[in-house]
């Protein structure tokens, strides 16, 4: 379990957390395991040792631009973009709902396209631009979609809201917000268990009809 971290944007110059202790523990437990294997097996394994250690412990360097800021990071291949954002960069605005691509709470934009960050391997966003809910506002000035969600009460508990808003912005940009029916269809990847759907649709309709730059 990772420790809880305060919410909010990543501070300037934020670096990935120091994982040296975790890696030490993992490496030492592997070495312990190998020490317990009979000599013959160890000899047979020795030839592949380097490769195996590399396979288990290799972290991959990645460069990702997140909310306009370049990050040089080092990630395990199995780290999802969602976990990278939340656990390493403290960008906890992006929510972990189902973690299996079924609820849309983790929706972010990668190179301008909305995707489920829970099913995106961070290593596969190398060289790409990621926008999260934290990157939507212009300083203190909220994005029109954020304003509309507040005005139309497009949420109750608010947990799905960052994903809803990221998806809503993409929905308008894609040109799929031309009617209530179209909005409902193209927002179907974002589940709201409070049932704020009518207000969410109203918020998106208003932004679309307002014709502002989204």
């Amino acid at each position: 379990m990772k420790k809880n971290k305060p919410c909010g944007n990543a501070p300037e110059g934020n670096e990935p957390e120091d994982n040296s202790r975790r890696n030490f523990l993992k490496q030492s437990s592997l070495l312990t395991a190998i020490a317990l294997i009979p000599g013959v097996a160890v000899k047979a394994a020795e030839g592949h040792f380097d490769e195996k250690v590399a396979a288990v412990f290799e972290k991959v360097p990645v460069s990702i631009e997140i909310n306009g800021k370049a990050h040089k990071l080092s990630v395990e291949p199995r780290t999802t973009l969602l976990d990278l954002l939340r656990e390493q960069l403290d960008l906890t605005g992006t929510k972990k709902g189902c973690d299996y691509g079924q609820c849309g709470a983790c929706t972010v934009h990668v190179n301008g396209k909305r995707v489920n960050s829970c099913l995106t391997l961070a290593v596969m966003t190398h060289g790409k631009k990621v926008t999260t809910i934290e990157g939507l506002a212009n300083g203190d000035q909220l994005h029109p979609m954020q304003e509309a969600f507040i005005k139309h009460d497009g949420f109750q508990c608010g947990y799905c809201t960052p994903g809803q808003i990221m998806s809503a912005v993409a929905c308008v940009r894609e040109g799929h917000a031309n009617s209530e029916a179209e909005i409902r269809e193209y927002m179907s990847g974002n589940i709201c268990r409070c049932g704020a759907y009518p207000n969410i649709v109203n918020a998106i309709m208003e932004v679309k009809e307002g014709g502002q730059q989204v």
Binding site: G101, G104, S188
Partner: peptide
């Protein structure tokens, strides 16, 4: 099929 997000992936 799927959702707009998944179709983008």
């Amino acid at each position: 099929g799927a959702s707009a997000q998944l179709r983008n992936m």
